[in-house]
Design a protein around this nucleic acid. Structure first.
Lengths: 204, 204
DNA sequence: TTACGCATCCCTTAAAAACAGGATATTTTT
DNA sequence: AAAAATATCCTGTTTTTAAGGGATGCGTAA
């Protein structure tokens, strides 16, 4: 039985490219495509694919959030994250939200087909390059509390401890404590390097 | 006479997608593709296309640099920048380096064909969305000197004025002056907001 | 219920950065 | 050659951060 495949990506070129790459694969049945999250969800109300190739950079909501929603509503669907970016944070978030695979957009036809087949059996597929990234980075597992994120944002906006304290109706010492904890969590020497890495990890 | 088209992009899906989108267009002749800058240059030693679709995020050197090189060696070739990103800095750099057009990867078939045809006549084509970006942004015209960039980078790496002074063999007061000037140029209140905006403008 | 994470608050001292207001030499541009 | 931009250096003062040590409630989940 053919694997029913659906694709959600806002790039026509990529949709067309994948369609073209897979058109001679009889074991894969092309169900169609959506160019945004909303129409993807609309499609799923009527049809149930086996595998969804899902871009991360969607125009309405991110593929990461969409992945979560789809898996909650339709747990039987296997999702493969599709992205230009070989970024650990994306891969992790995607996998945490229930994705079964992650493929970069520079994947070859063979790789793509393998990913779809592996994932359709309920297994996990991560492309070689992406896997390398996961192993190379010693995990940037920085978990911030709500308050810490808030304070971090205000610091990045150029506010001093004093100003932040007034804004949040807390004591300066409390703000200093949060700052202290942020520096420790990021293993940063000072605010400059903290902001830099926070921006890189897209935590601001 | 058909427009001879070559494409340089490291994503097979995109190459295949464009190929597929254009396969029925008789006025466009598909010459082939390269997945990196080196093989693009190698191809150009033997053949001369009319138009090159050039991705910005190439694995070896950036499409921006490649664009410059190609235009210097083969001025008759018209280049269309191709990117996922609707970012002013990219568009500007690409155009400054001699590109004749800029198209986003979510372009439709019609848009793509129009771009190729317009550009092949020596005119300029910028996709609607990209044009919007160019107009919407009031230009972040922050010009840094070499030294300022250097100091900015070191600050972002978490170094103190003292450390930077030692590293660059200059006085602390000089570093402080650069810092002062950086804050003024960015109109930033302190280093935290400076780093944030510098990261956003990709100056680090 | 007890342990843990979280948010809150406090003190002290030293270091660093921000602010103000200069000056001088060397490039670059005009 | 003159003007402008750049890089370098200086003396102060005030504000802000960093780093060290703590402590107290308040939920929540084991």
């Amino acid at each position: 039985m053919a694997i029913k495949l659906f694709i959600t990506d806002d790039h026509y070129m990529v949709i067309e490219g994948i369609h073209s790459l897979l058109q001679n694969e009889k074991q894969i049945e092309w169900m169609g495509h959506a160019t945004n999250a909303a129409s993807c969800l609309a499609f799923l109300k009527q049809y149930l694919p086996d595998v969804i190739l899902m871009d991360i950079g969607l125009p309405d909501i991110s593929g990461i959030d969409l992945c979560k929603e789809v898996k909650e509503k339709y747990p039987s669907v296997f999702i493969i994250g599709l992205s230009t970016f070989n970024q650990l944070s994306f891969i992790e978030k995607m996998m945490n939200n229930g994705a079964s695979g992650y493929v970069l957009k520079n994947a070859t036809r063979e790789e793509l087909i393998e990913a779809i087949e592996v994932v359709s059996k309920g297994k996990t597929y991560i492309s070689d390059e992406a896997a390398k990234t996961m192993n190379s980075k010693p995990e940037s597992n920085i978990l911030l509390t709500r308050r810490e994120k808030e304070v971090l944002g205000l610091i990045a906006d150029g506010m001093t401890n004093n100003e932040i304290a007034q804004k949040l109706f807390i004591s300066i010492t409390t703000v200093e404590t949060h700052r202290k904890n942020l520096l420790a969590k990021f293993d940063a020497k000072n605010i400059a390097s903290l902001i830099k890495t926070a921006m890189q990890l897209q935590l601001i």
